[in-house]
């Protein structure tokens, strides 16, 4: 099964081609050019070099957020365009989960994935690693670094920090309370490699059902629902 993976949620854009679990090609661009110009040509060139055509793609995997709204929409619109035209399904993958899959997946390791959400907040999810695969400990959420620190301390484990929010966490967290390590630079941020790996074994859906996960909305939605709930009970 040939999977094309796309990642455009942050500053760098990347694409990868997988034959089942084996990565055949990987391409990344981090020169500040808009993903709208760079992402699709990377996919096109890789396929060409592999002697394949877009019609050979069995499914597309794409990071669906959290991340830059505009960046996400570029990746998702391309995934939708390809899958709609090919009548092939698509897998939307959490950016944070893709980050974990692309990280140092050593068994027993605790992974803290964090993207800078400004004002002392991060988009975050926690994972542990079992059998070489990340296993979720939390949902994706927007959380203050202070709240995150309480959770990390409570688990009494050393954590590896991943993502463009890793350094922010490293600098902000009270390291006398919690042991944290910065993941090595090449493994630190999300990439199409992580997206492709995270998509393995996940169910693919028709292109029309693929939606971005802007994340902040779900938090706002939760607050709205909580408020409605409170109103209805009083």
């Amino acid at each position: 099964m040939l999977t094309l993976a796309l990642e455009s949620s942050a500053k760098a854009a990347s694409a990868a081609v997988f034959e089942d679990e084996k990565m055949l090609a990987f391409s990344i661009q981090n020169a500040g050019l808009t993903h709208s110009r760079t992402l699709l040509p990377m996919a096109e060139d890789m396929l060409k070099n592999l002697g394949k055509t877009p019609a050979d793609i069995d499914r597309v995997a794409v990071s669906r957020g959290p991340g830059s709204f505009t960046g996400l929409r570029i990746g998702l619109a391309e995934a939708k365009g390809l899958c709609w035209a090919l009548e092939k399904p698509v897998v939307g993958v959490s950016t944070l989960e893709a980050m974990a899959w692309g990280g140092p997946v050593l068994d027993g390791q605790m992974l803290c994935c964090a993207m800078d959400a400004r004002r002392g907040q991060v988009y975050n999810a926690l994972f542990t690693v079992e059998g070489g695969k990340p296993v979720r400990l939390t949902e994706d959420r927007a959380i203050s670094i202070a709240e995150l620190e309480i959770e990390l301390v409570a688990r009494q484990e050393p954590w590896i920090l991943l993502g463009d929010g890793a350094e922010l966490c490293f600098d902000t967290l009270d390291r006398s309370q919690v042991t944290v390590f910065l993941a090595p630079e090449p493994l630190r941020v999300q990439s199409a490699r992580g997206v492709g790996l995270a998509a393995m074994g996940k169910e693919a859906v028709p292109a029309g059902e693929l939606l971005p996960q802007y994340l902040r909305l779900s938090q706002a939605e939760r607050e709205r629902l909580a408020k409605l709930e409170k109103e209805s009970t009083t």
Binding site: S68, F69, T70, A117, R118, Y214, R216, A220, E223, R224
Partner: peptide
């Protein structure tokens, strides 16, 4: 403040 999210405020900051 929730509407800041609706208008994509954070994205503009990052651009």
């Amino acid at each position: 403040a929730d509407e800041l999210f609706d208008i994509g405020w954070e994205d503009y900051l990052a651009r």
